[in-house]
Design a protein around this nucleic acid. Structure first.
Length: 576
RNA sequence: CGGGGUGUGGCGCAGCCCGGUUAGCGCGCUUCGUUCGGGACGAAGAGGCCGGAGGUUCGAAUCCUCUCACCCCGACCA
C-alpha cells in the first residue's frame, strides 16, 4: 500500500472529545471516525487491525471445533417473545417496525437467533455436541457510550454458542473455550488479561467468567485476593467483613434534627460511620413490594447482588413511594415497618454488629442501639454489599480492587433458551431431551481499543506484530534524490513480492512529518531510506515496538524483515 | 433518565457577557520558491449561510424561546 493512496488523514492535534489515549489515537491516526454517539466507521488502518484480530479469533474458534455461521441483525419480534426477552429487556434492545407494521428488533446478542437456526437442524443426540459462532454486528442502545471503541452502541462481536447433552459435557467444553480465549488474548498481544468470576446478568445461567484486561481506565472493578486464590468482578465478589460484636444495649430514641445522611447522623451523635445502619429503598420486587436494603453505614449496596435476591433489577425508590409505605426518607430503618408493604433485605454486616444507629421512621429522629436479632429479627438476610479494599477472602488473603476492560465473557446458559424456544433432540433411549447451552462472546472492536490503550507511547500505538495493520513501513526521505527514490521503490516492490504487508510512505514530505505519522500508525518495523545511510549502502531499520535501531545493507533487509516478522508473531504464540 | 458543558471552514480554538460594515487565529489544504533525518520558511490562494427553527431589533455568531446533536459525571450495562 502506498501512503499517497491511503484514505484517511492523520492529524497533529488531539480531538477535543477524546478522553482516553486510545480514543485520541483512534481519531488522530485515521483508524476510525464517529458517525453518531457510539457509532463508528472504520478507515483502512482500523479495519486491517480488526481483520487481524478476527483471523486469530477464527483460528482459535475453529481449533475448538467451532463452525462459523452468519445470523441476521434484524430479527422479528416473535423470536424474542419466545425467549421472553422482548418484554424483559429494556430500551437497550432497539425495537422498530417494518413497512407492514411488523415489530422487529436489532439483535443485541444471538441466543434467539442461534436456537432458531439450530432447532430444526438438530434432531438426534448423535449430532451433539457442537458449537457455532459468528463475527457480526451487534446493536445495543446503551444509555451512554464512551471511550472511543471501548464502549459503543454498534459493534462487532464474535459470539459462539455450544449445545450439549449433559452438564459434564458442557463443563468440559467450557474449559476448552476458556483456554481458547486465553490463547486469543495472548496471540493478539493483549497484556494483563485475567479471567474473573462474573455476574451472568440478563443472560441467565449459573457459571460465567469475564476476561478482563487490567487497566486503570477500565469500567469494571475487579476484586483480587492478594494471595492469588480469588478473583472476581466486584458485582459478584464476596468477602469477609470485619464484624463489631458487642453487648447489646437497650434501644434508645434520640432527636437528630435535620440529620439525614449517614455522615451527618454519625458526627452529630459522635459515633463512627460503621456504627450506623444505612437504609436504601428500591421501587419493588417481583411482587411489587417496596424493597428496603439495609447495610452497615460504612458500606455500599451492591445492586447486582440485590438484583439476584429480589429477582428483578433494583430501581431507586421515589420519596413518595417510601412515604406511602410508612417510612421517612432520611430517617428510615426496618424498625416498625409494615412487612406486608416492605420487603426488608439485611446484609450480614448489620446482623453481626451491635448497637447501631438506625432511623426511627419519624422525622428528625433516630434510634441508638439497634440490634437486628432483637429489633428486626424477621428480616431476610443476604449478602448485598460491595466488597471493599481490605476485606478478606474467606480463609484467604486481603482483597484488593483494580480496574479492567471486559474484552470477553463466557457463560453456561443451561436450558434457558433451548427450553423456552422448544429446541429438543432424541436421546439414545428415544426420549425427548433439551440441549444444554453455553455461549461465548468477544468484543472485537473493544479488543482493538484495549490493545491500543495498553500498548502505546506518547506518540501513538505500538501494535503487536500479530495485529498490526501492516508489518513494515517504508519511509523514503527526500524523494527528489534519485537514488533514494529508486532504492525505496525497489525495496517496496521486493517486500510486496516477498509477501510482506508493507505500507510505503511515497509522499515527498519532510522527515518529521513522515515519522510523526508513522508513529500514529504504529507499524512494528520501520525501514528508513535516506541519502545519509544510503551512501554506505545501508538502510536504517527501526522497531516501533522496542525502539531498537540498526543498520542493514539493502541486499539483506528483505530477508531480515521476514525473519523478524515470523519471530515477532511467534513470540505471542502461547507455548502450551 | 438526572446533573454539568459544548456546538463558529477538515482539526484545535477566539469572538458572544456589553448586538454595528467584508466573521478572525493556529494547524491542515492548493500553487510557486527556498528547504529536507523528528510535525520547516516565505509568498499567493481556496474553504464557513456561526447546529437548526422561530422571535426581538433599523441591524443577530452575539439577546430571547423552542429544538437537535455531541462531550463529561452519575444512573444503566451479556
Amino acid at each position: 500500500m502506498r501512503m499517497s493512496d491511503l484514505v484517511g488523514k492523520r492529524y497533529k492535534e488531539r480531538p477535543a472529545e477524546a478522553t482516553l489515549e486510545s480514543h485520541a489515537f483512534l481519531l488522530r491516526g485515521g483508524y476510525a471516525r464517529q458517525m453518531a454517539n457510539g457509532i463508528y466507521s472504520l478507515l483502512p488502518p482500523g479495519l486491517r487491525v480488526i481483520r487481524k484480530i478476527e483471523a486469530i479469533v477464527r483460528e482459535e474458534m475453529d481449533g475448538i471445533c467451532g463452525q462459523e455461521v452468519q445470523m441476521p441483525v434484524v430479527q422479528p419480534r416473535e423470536l424474542w417473545d419466545e425467549s421472553g426477552r422482548y418484554g424483559a429487556v429494556g430500551a437497550e434492545l432497539c425495537r422498530f417496525q417494518d413497512r407492514t407494521g411488523h415489530d422487529m428488533v436489532l439483535a443485541m446478542t444471538h441466543e434467539e437467533g442461534v436456537v432458531h437456526l439450530c432447532r430444526n437442524e438438530i434432531t438426534s443426540y448423535t449430532q451433539l455436541p457442537f458449537m457455532v459462532y459468528q463475527i457480526q454486528t451487534k446493536f445495543r442502545d446503551e444509555p451512554r457510550s464512551r471511550g472511543g471503541l471501548i464502549r459503543v452502541r454498534e459493534f462487532t462481536m464474535k459470539d459462539g454458542y455450544s449445545f450439549h447433552t449433559s452438564q459434564e459435557e458442557l463443563d468440559e467444553y467450557y474449559q476448552h473455550c476458556f483456554k481458547a480465549y486465553e490463547r486469543i488474548f495472548a496471540r493478539s498481544g493483549m497484556p494483563n488479561v485475567v479471567a474473573v468470576e462474573a455476574d451472568s446478568g440478563m443472560m441467565g445461567g449459573a457459571i460465567s467468567h469475564e476476561f478482563m484486561m487490567l487497566t486503570e481506565v477500565g469500567e469494571d472493578t475487579i476484586v483480587t485476593s492478594d494471595d492469588g486464590s480469588y478473583i472476581a468482578n466486584q458485582e459478584v465478589a464476596a468477602g469477609e467483613v470485619e464484624a463489631f460484636a458487642e453487648e447489646a444495649l437497650p434501644l434508645e430514641k434520640v432527636s437528630t434534627p435535620g440529620k439525614k445522611t449517614i455522615e451527618d447522623v454519625a458526627s452529630f451523635l459522635g459515633v463512627e460511620i460503621r456504627q450506623t445502619a444505612k437504609a436504601v429503598f428500591y421501587e419493588s420486587d417481583t411482587e411489587g413490594k417496596l424493597v428496603l436494603a439495609v447495610v452497615r453505614g460504612d458500606r455500599e449496596v451492591n445492586e447486582a447482588k440485590l438484583s439476584k435476591v429480589i429477582q428483578t433489577p433494583p430501581v431507586p425508590a421515589t420519596d413518595e413511594r417510601i412515604k406511602a409505605a410508612g417510612a421517612i426518607p432520611g430517617y428510615a430503618s426496618p424498625i416498625g415497618l409494615d412487612s406486608t408493604k416492605v420487603r426488608v433485605v439485611v446484609d450480614p454486616t448489620v446482623r453481626d454488629s451491635n448497637n447501631l444507629v438506625a432511623g426511627a421512621n419519624e422525622v428528625d429522629t433516630h434510634y441508638k442501639n439497634f440490634n437486628l436479632e432483637r429489633d428486626g429479627s424477621d428480616a431476610e438476610i443476604a449478602d448485598i454489599i460491595m466488597v471493599q479494599d481490605g476485606d478478606r477472602h474467606s480463609g484467604g488473603g486481603a482483597l484488593r480492587l483494580s480496574r479492567g476492560i471486559e474484552v470477553g465473557n463466557i457463560f453456561q446458559l443451561g436450558t434457558k433458551y433451548s427450553a423456552a424456544m422448544g429446541m429438543t433432540y432424541d436421546d439414545a433411549d428415544g426420549n425427548v431431551q433439551t440441549p444444554i447451552m453455553g455461549c461465548y462472546g468477544i468484543g472485537i472492536g473493544r479488543m482493538m481499543g484495549s490493545i491500543m490503550e495498553a500498548r502505546r507511547d506518547k506518540f501513538g500505538p505500538q501494535w503487536p506484530m500479530p495485529v498490526a495493520p501492516w508489518h513494515v513501513q517504508v519511509n523514503a526521505l527526500k524523494l527528489t534524490n534519485e537514488t533514494v527514490k529508486e532504492t525505496a521503490e525497489s525495496l517496496y516492490q521486493s517486500l510486496v513480492d516477498a509477501g510482506v504487508e508493507v505500507l510505503y510512505d511515497d509522499r515527498d514530505l519532510r522527515p518529521g512529518v513522515q515519522f510523526a505519522e508513522a508513529d500514529l500508525l504504529g507499524i512494528p518495523i520501520r525501514l528508513i531510506v535516506g541519502e545519509r545511510n544510503l551512501a554506505n549502502g545501508d538502510i536504517e531499520v527501526k522497531r516501533r515496538d522496542t525502539g531498537e535501531t540498526s543498520m542493514h545493507s539493502v541486499a539483506d533487509v528483505v530477508e531480515l524483515v521476514k525473519t523478524w516478522i515470523a519471530e515477532s508473531i511467534a513470540e505471542f504464540q502461547p507455548t502450551d
